[in-house]
Amino acid sequence: MSRRVVVLDYGFGNVRSAVRALERVGADVELTADKKAALEADGLLVPGVGAFAAVNAGLHAIDGAGIVDRRLAGGRPVLGICVGLQVMFETSTEPGEGLPDGLGQWPGTVERLPAQVVPHMGWTPVQVPAGSVLFDGVEDERFYFVHSYAVQRFELVDTTGGLVEAPKVTWAEHGTRFVAAVENGALAATQFHPEKSGDAGAQLLRNWVGSLG
């Protein structure tokens, strides 16, 4: 059965390429800002291209924070891409007009990469943890990145006494180690662009769509 995926349309992001990539892996895709559709879909994809604060402001303008919160509270899958990963964290040091505070789903700050060449642009290998669902079959592949800012530390304290599985964090390097992807229950996100990452990116999206209940 085809899974219904909403690509959240809030005025920013790689929306058309994301829609096409999801359709190619068999999803029934709708590009919309409609709250009801976003809440009821099997999966929600939050794209993001541009400055953190502007993307965050665009999301808040359509109650994107509320949509993500309500979906996750019900265990409904959400996938963020690029700045769509970054806004899941608490805040960013990137200058720009808009809202500097993110959605706060994960602790952490998005910071400028301390590299000689920025932006980080191109194909880069990733370090995948054991048991990853997103990277099943593509653990040793390279993925396409375009970004100047990233989360360089991931610290999530377990307050459940081990009742909840710890997030699976995938890392990459450019000047320093940074978060390339996170899988945390119903919430997953990638700093790279799977829709621009060829066969490996297509398989990652296929894995995500296949995981939707």
Rank of each mutant, 00 (worst) to 15 (best):
Glu97Gly: 10
Val133Ser: 07
Tyr149Thr: 13
Gly198Trp: 12
Gly48Tyr: 14
Ile81Glu: 13
Val19Lys: 15
Ala65Gly: 15
Leu187Asp: 06
Thr93Met: 02
Ala166Gly: 02
Ala51His: 15
Val49Ala: 09
Asn56Val: 10
Glu155Tyr: 06
Ala38Cys: 08
Val29His: 04
Gly185Pro: 08
Ala202Ile: 08
Ser148Lys: 03
Ser197Ala: 12
His174Tyr: 14
Met1Thr: 04
Thr93Trp: 03
Leu8Asn: 00
Trp208Val: 06
Met121Lys: 01
Val182Gln: 03
Ser132Glu: 09
Pro95Lys: 02
Gly198Lys: 06
Val164Ile: 15
Thr159Gln: 15
Gly185Ile: 05
Leu72His: 07
Arg71Gly: 12
Leu113Ser: 05
Glu141Asn: 06
Gln127Pro: 05
Ala73Lys: 13
Val6Arg: 01
His147Pro: 09
Glu90Asn: 13
Leu44Ile: 12
Gly98Asn: 06
Ala53Pro: 09
Thr176Val: 12
Met88Cys: 03
Leu8Ile: 09
Val15Arg: 14
Val68Ser: 13
His147Tyr: 02
Tyr10Phe: 05
His193Asn: 10
Val78Arg: 03
Thr91Gly: 02
Ala65Ser: 11
Leu134Trp: 12
Tyr10Pro: 04
Pro167Tyr: 07
Thr170Glu: 00
Met88Glu: 08
Asn184Cys: 14
Gln127Lys: 13
Thr91Lys: 14
Gln127Tyr: 08
Arg70Ser: 15
Leu85Phe: 08
Asp158Ser: 03
Ala166Asp: 10
Gln203Arg: 15
Trp171Phe: 13
Gly102Met: 08
Ala57Ile: 12
Glu139Ala: 14
Pro77Ile: 09
Arg20Met: 09
Phe154Met: 05
Ala53Leu: 02
Glu173Phe: 00
Phe145Ser: 01
Asp101Asn: 11
Val87Thr: 13
Ala180Asp: 04
Gly201His: 04
Met88His: 07
Gly104Pro: 06
Gly137Pro: 05
Glu165Arg: 06
Val164His: 07
Arg142Thr: 14
Thr170Ala: 03
Arg177Pro: 07
Leu113Gly: 00
Val179Ser: 00
Arg76Phe: 03
Pro107Gly: 04
Val117Lys: 00
Pro194Lys: 09
Ala172Glu: 10
Val78Ile: 04
Gly50Met: 04
Val117Ala: 03
Asn14Ile: 10
Arg20Gly: 03
Val78His: 01
Glu195Lys: 11
Ala181Asn: 01
Met121Gly: 01
Gly26Tyr: 09
Pro107Ala: 13
Asp34Trp: 11
Gly108Asp: 03
Leu212Ser: 02
Glu111His: 01
Ala27Pro: 01
Thr170Asp: 01
Thr109Gly: 08
Phe145Val: 05
Val146Leu: 13
Glu90Ile: 13
Glu94Ala: 12
Gln116Trp: 00
Lys35Met: 11
Val151Asp: 01
Ala130Glu: 15
Glu139Gly: 04
Trp123Val: 10
Asn14Gly: 14
Arg206Cys: 07
Gly13Lys: 11
Leu39Thr: 03
Val6Gly: 00
Asp42Trp: 01
Gly131Thr: 11
Val169Cys: 07
Val6Thr: 02
Phe154Arg: 11
Val29Trp: 03
Ala21Asp: 05
Pro129Arg: 07
Arg3Ile: 13
Asp42Ile: 01
Leu156Asn: 05
Ala188Asp: 02
Gly210Ser: 02
Gly74Cys: 08
Gln127Cys: 07
Asn14Glu: 10
Ser211Asp: 04
Gly210His: 00
Glu139Asn: 00
Gly11Asp: 14
Asp28Gly: 12
